[in-house]
Every structure is written in C-alpha cells, then in structure tokens.
Amino acid sequence: MLLEQIINGITLGSIYAIVALGFTLVFGVLGIINMAHGEIFMFGAFIGVTVTSTLGLPIWMAFLAAIAATAILGYLLEQFALRPLRGKKGVSHLAPLISTIGVSIFLENLSHHLFGAGNHPFKSSFAEIHYTIGSITIYLVQILIFVISVILMIALSYWLSKTKAGKALRATAENLETASILGVNTKQIITLTVIIASAMGGIAGILVGMAFNSVNPQMGLSIGLKGLAIIILGGMGNVKGAMAGGLILGLAETFIVAYGDSGYRDAIAFIAIIVILLIRPQGLFGKKTSEGRP
C-alpha cells in the first residue's frame, strides 16, 4: 500500500516536474513567467485525446501530433504575445505576465468551444496494461511517465551544458545583451526556448491524459498553478530544483489524498509557496543573490 502510494506520488511528481521544467526554461532565458504554459499543456492533452480516442490512431502518433501542435502554439505565443513587448520603452515588467494571462484565457476558452466543457476520457488500451507484483499493481503508463521524465531531464541538462545551441541558450539566460554582443542570435534562441518549453508541456499533457484518464479545459489552470508553485519551491530558473520540487509536490499530494483529506490536495502547493517565501525566499535549491532578489 505504502509502496503503491510512493509509486503514484512519483508518477504525479514526474509530470509536475516536466511542467515545471517548461516554466523554468522560459524563466531562465527570458526572465518572465509564461502564464499560458498550463493551457499549452492542456492543449497537448486534448490533441492526445483526439488522436487516440476520436481518430483511433496509435499512441506514438498522439505524441508526435501533440508535440507538433504545442510547438506551433509556442511559436505563436512568442510571435504575438511576447515579441511585441520586448525592448519597447516604458513597458512595465508586468506586461508579459498580463499578456500571457491573456493567451491562457484565450486557449482555455478556445478548447471549451472546440472540445466541449466536460471531462474527456483518454481511451487507450495502452493505458490498461499493468503488472502485479505481490500486492502491488503498477501500470505500464506509470513506468513510462517516470522514464520519459527522467530522459527529458537528462536530455535537457545535457543539451544545456554540452551542445552549441544549449550553450548559446545559457549565454542568453545569463545576459541578453552580452549574448547578442558575443554573436548569439538571441531572437532565434528565445523562439527556440519557448518552442521547446511548450513541446515539453505537450508531452506532459499526454502523459497526464494517460495516467488519469481524463482531460478537460480547466486542467491547464490547475496544473499551471502547480508548475508555478514548483518553480518557486525549487528556485526560479533552476533545472534540478524544478525536478525535485515536482517530486516533492507529487508525493505530498498523493499522501494527503491517501491518508488525509483529499479535498485539500490542491491547496498544498500554495501553502508550500507561502511557507517557502517566508523562510527561504530563493527557493529550496536557489542560490542567494547578494541583493536577495533574483
């Protein structure tokens, strides 16, 4: 029983971690919070439902379609909601926040109109496959989710530290101006960042659809909020922190559902935020800057 809860917690936490990585990536490079990330995630989940349940196509096609669709959404987000604000005189730091909130509201309601309001089951025979070891039931999907999230994290870390594009990305993250002086095409890097982050959201969307067999337009808000909570928990713009924060939240939520009052599950994330802001404002894994403000 306990082991099963831990497995559930890790599954949930892995998904949260992928969502949080998307936030972290954009925050790290652009210094902004992409409030539309949760809705892009939700769109990925709906693409998954459409491809598998409505069209009856295999699951790998769903992954490809979701990645493609969310990557395009990411591109559009950058083109229409973020780029126009960049480098403009007198634009407050709140502008990108408000602009992406606009995109999130738009996407949520667009999916209302496209897919309908209720819950959509994620019909996939694949999601039924499970193994029983002793008294423990473990679903193939759970293993898959964990494996995918670990692969994504390792790939992202490798890509950031080793590849040329990744180095350019980090240079951009450190300082936009310096990076552009050093010949990094910051415009391209920024677009790439938003696209990758969005596609990761899309992948997470499908994984959630499979794990919980339910997809609805409101899930973007709730997952998005948790992703935000995690990056505050783990330290803004910190890849390891996002992963660890995701797992901590996933386990905490699973345990409160199993052993506490399930109704309060969604409150944990934010109580954690307030506590963290009070006792360790730079996040669990963030470095303290000299001014205490990132």
Binding site: P84, S99, F106, L110
Partner: peptide
C-alpha cells in the same frame, strides 16, 4: 473570455 484573452494580449502590445 475568448475576447478578454485577445484584449489582454492586444492591449499589452
């Protein structure tokens, strides 16, 4: 809310 979303994006731009 579709319109609200667009309004927010357009106003910021």
């Amino acid at each position: 809310y579709l319109i609200y979303g667009l309004v927010l994006v357009l106003m910021m731009a």
